[in-house]
Design a binder for these strands. Structure first.
Length: 327
DNA sequence: AATGAAGGCAACCGCAGAAGG
DNA sequence: GCCTTCTGCGGTTGCCTTCAT
């Protein structure tokens, strides 16, 4: 089970292949077949390791290799197979005659993956991303707004002026919204952190970056007023633990806020009790929610789903426009 | 025209499983 | 059953080309 010593041997050439080397390898294999890759370089008169020869042959010199751009059909096949197989490039390559696993892998990493991300799909799960990540700028802006609200509560003259201008009701509504949003994020961050730390699946359903982003956003909303800088996950001791779901300073949910929450349809809303439902299991790649294939093909939204919702808490989200503002 | 950034691709690295002694 | 060797695979790197400023 040990590592092959073949590439550890010193004195062997590395790097790009010259046309002369290609010719030697090609002629030898056409005449003798590749046989043992380990002995091939010596027999073919090449100062390369067998591994390098095999790679050159399978990825470049093989006569049945198809070169050039990937067709629409090939793209669809890759997308479909990747949603089922994950990063099993060799398995995917068997369904695409003339294409090598390396070529498919490169094409995925440089084109398809980016396109899926741009369209709002998680490239690993092929499911719509939990869109609060896409809405992070708004969340950060909310954190800033929260500072302003706190300043208003502390009797800041400017804030008093705002109250005088009849902004009080808006302030209460915004406070309620933020409290609600914070707990949504807390639930998401907790789920993602545990998924990331515990179940490092081969498909990498949730990236560490996403988890960090969720934690950072939660922290931004939770941070004390006047400290609007977003702490890094490292600084927060990102260890997959619970993120405190409270504003640090005292009573946040006033009677006005509670009333607004009821208006928002968030009855039974509690932060400490963890009443929020957990996120859906995003690692379930075998059951994609949306028809991303048609979405990517037609560059249209992934709507088609009728009853299925792209949101992780479909039954929980109230219909209030505020929610759809964020998602 | 020069230069830095971004994209694309070939090749390398290291791990894991299969095969054979 | 254990050890060694070979092969295959997926992730990553680094170079070259193209694009933007």
């Amino acid at each position: 089970m040990g590592r092959s010593p073949c590439c550890d041997e010193s004195g062997l050439k590395k790097g790009p292949w010259t046309p002369e080397e290609d010719e030697k390898l090609l002629q030898y294999i056409q005449k003798n077949g590749h046989g043992s890759w380990r002995t091939l370089p010596r027999l073919a008169g090449l100062n390369r390791c067998g591994k390098s020869c095999r790679l050159r042959w399978t990825n470049y010199l093989r006569p049945d290799i198809k070169r050039g751009k990937f067709s629409q059909e090939e793209e669809q096949t890759i997308l479909h197979l990747h949603s089922i197989l994950g990063n099993k490039w060799s398995a995917i390559a068997t369904h695409l005659p003339g294409r090598t696993d390396n070529e498919i892998k490169n094409f995925w990493n440089t084109h398809l993956k980016k396109r899926l991300i741009q369209m709002g799909f998680d490239p690993m799960t092929h499911r719509p991303r939990t869109d609060f990540f896409a809405a992070l700028p708004q969340l950060i802006a909310l954190a800033s707004l929260r500072d302003q609200l706190a300043a208003a509560a502390s009797g800041d003259p400017a804030a008093v002026q705002m109250q005088g201008a009849g902004v009080g009701a808006d302030v209460a509504i915004q406070a309620a919204k933020m409290q609600y949003l914070q707990c949504l994020l807390q639930s998401a961050a907790t789920t993602i952190a545990s998924a990331g730390s515990g179940g490092s699946t081969s498909s990498g359903a949730i990236s560490a970056h996403d988890a960090d982003a969720a934690l950072a956003a939660t922290a931004a909303l939770s941070s004390p007023p006047g400290n609007s800088s977003v702490p890094t996950p490292t600084a927060m001791g990102h260890s997959g633990g619970q993120v405190p779901c409270t504003f640090p300073e005292a009573p946040v949910i006033t009677s006005d806020v509670e009333a607004n929450l009821r208006l928002l349809g968030a009855d039974g809303f509690t932060c400490h009790g963890g009443s929020l439902p957990p996120l859906a299991d995003l690692s379930d790649v075998t059951n994609p929610v949306a028809d991303w294939c048609s979405a990517t093909a037609a560059s249209s939204s992934c709507g088609g789903g009728g009853a299925s919702s792209p949101f992780p808490w479909p039954e929980f989200f109230p219909d209030d426009p505020f929610v759809t503002d964020f998602l």
